[in-house]
Structures are given as structure tokens and as C-alpha cells.
Design a protein around this nucleic acid. Sequence first.
DNA 1: CGTCCTGTTATCGG
DNA 2: GCCGATAACAGGAC
Length: 260
Amino acid sequence: MPELPEVESFRKRIDPIALHKKIKNITIHDDYILKTPKKEFRKTLIGKKFKETKRRGKYLFLNFDSKSLMLHFAMSGNVEYFKDLKNEPEYSKIRFTFENGDYFSIISVRKLGRVEIVNDINKYIEEKEIGRDALDLDIEEFKEIMEKKKRSYSKTALMDQKALSGIGNEYSDEILFQAKIYPKTKISDLNDASIENLYDSIKNVLKTAIEVNVKNANYPDNYIMPHRDENDNCPECGSQIKRFEISSRHGYYCPKCQKK
DNA sequence: CGTCCTGTTATCGG
DNA sequence: GCCGATAACAGGAC
């Protein structure tokens, strides 16, 4: 589930918990998602302090020394902080103990996800071809990126992590709903005004979603996300929501508000 | 029991 | 090379 807004809210939660505290111990319950060898992982991190967090798309980096701990949550990841070992969450895969006795766990319900030590963030981003962060690009950069994706469906272009990173299945539905674009409209069929409108929707939806996540609040009333169901209705016009398939993933849209 | 869902990656055909 | 479709991965929720 974690897309850019969730990962950003993880980051905001991690900052006051995990930064500037000496790592006393690391307990690895399950190393399936750990891509750095266990021994090396513990040896590299124990005794260190995280000094800052950085995010690019759905990737989160906790920097220490000149290196980073990279977390990718895939579909079921989370992070949690606790003071009493009895409160260690279910599916905690890797647990950090800080010198002050606080704990911090990386949680993954399924075995999808990725945790590893990265020597050079920029090199990693290049190797993995992680696109520009969806919240960290200006309109001109966005237009250039969309020009390269012009033969794609709008929804597919938004979800292409190599084009721009951070947007997944659910938020792409919301962004297209707010922009009033039919998801299978090709990017090349959007005029300049529509592209600019799409850009504004990306920013607005992601920023709103970050606030919603951080405050644990509800989405605005005019959002389609809580209505992603064929038996539900459009919050704007009341039409029945439609479900469709795209690259073996399901999306939802309003057939009246998002015309072909 | 089967189906669904999520993100990424690989593979195939156009 | 780009694009879309599909499957694989995993397992909880229903």
C-alpha cells in the first residue's frame, strides 16, 4: 500500500524516533527482505547514528556516515517505534535497539519489500533508474517527462517509476479523477492545458494525502479514493463508479467526470 | 478452498 | 527501444 504519501509520513515519523541515537543492537527475525548479508548489515550499523532521512518516490533512505540504510516497503511494509519489547509489532522483521532503550522495527507482512545498505544514494538511484520524485519537479521537467511517455496511457505514465517516482495504483486513480482525465487517454491526446492540470493534480493530491496520513485524517469529500468500488458512487456527480483493468491491475474512475 | 490486492521485475508479442 | 499484457512473488483478509 505505501505510495509516496505513506512513505513520506513514515519519514516524518522516523525523524524524531531514529535520528541522532546510537544503535546499540539489531535483531533480525527474518532476513528475507534484507538484501545486505546479515553479518555485514549488523556490523555496519551497530554503533552508528542516523543523521538524516531522505525520500525519493517510494524509496526511503536513512543516512549515516557516508552511507544509507535503504527501505522499500513494497505492498505491506511499515515502520514502528516502541519502548517496551512486549509491544513489538507482529511481522517485525528487523528490530533496532537504540542506546536509550527505545526500539524501532521494520515491518513487512508479506515477503515483498527491500532493505539494504547503500554506499552511494545517487549511484543507487541511477542503477535502479528511479525517476524524479513526483513532488520534486517543476512543470517544465514534468512536460519533458510526459513528452517521452506520450504513447502511454495516462495512468500507466503516472505509475512508471522510471519516469517519475512515487505514484502507485491508488493515487494514480485519484490524480486522474481530480484532473478529470480518463485513465486510458494517451498522454499524446492531452493538450498543454490538460498536462498542466495533471501536474497541478499530482501536487495537490500528494500533498493532501501526506497531510491526511500524518494527521490520520480522512480524505476530502471530493476524493474518489474512499469510493474505489463498483457498487459505490462518484462523490462529485453520483454516477456509478467503473472498474477497469490495466496491466493486470485494477483501477476505478467516474465515467461521467472522466470522459474518454 | 479460491480470489483479491499491492509494487516490482521479467518476459513475450506488437 | 517503446508499449501493453501477463505472470510471478507472498500471504493476510474474506
